[in-house]
């Protein structure tokens, strides 16, 4: 649920709970994006070839 939804309430539960969820997802998403991009760059630099 996003804060755009009318079901969203600006109360502590929603902020903490949904905040926690989006926070975790962001970390995972950013982490993976970082890995993939860095891997792509590394590969283009010729790293990792046997």
């Amino acid at each position: 649920m996003l804060p755009f939804s009318f079901e969203w309430l600006w109360d502590i539960s929603h902020m903490l709970f949904m905040g926690g969820l989006w926070y975790a997802l962001t970390i995972l998403g950013l982490g993976m994006t970082y890995c993939i991009i860095k891997a792509a760059i590394d590969t283009s630099k010729g790293k990792g070839s046997h």
């Binding site: 755009f4 969203w8 309430l9 600006w10 109360d11």
Partner: peptide
């Protein structure tokens, strides 16, 4: 009312109930 109590009066956010 709640919005006033909150530290972030972000305009694009929907108004709370």
């Amino acid at each position: 009312k709640t919005v006033e109590r909150l530290p972030w009066p972000i305009s694009w956010m929907p108004r709370p109930y």
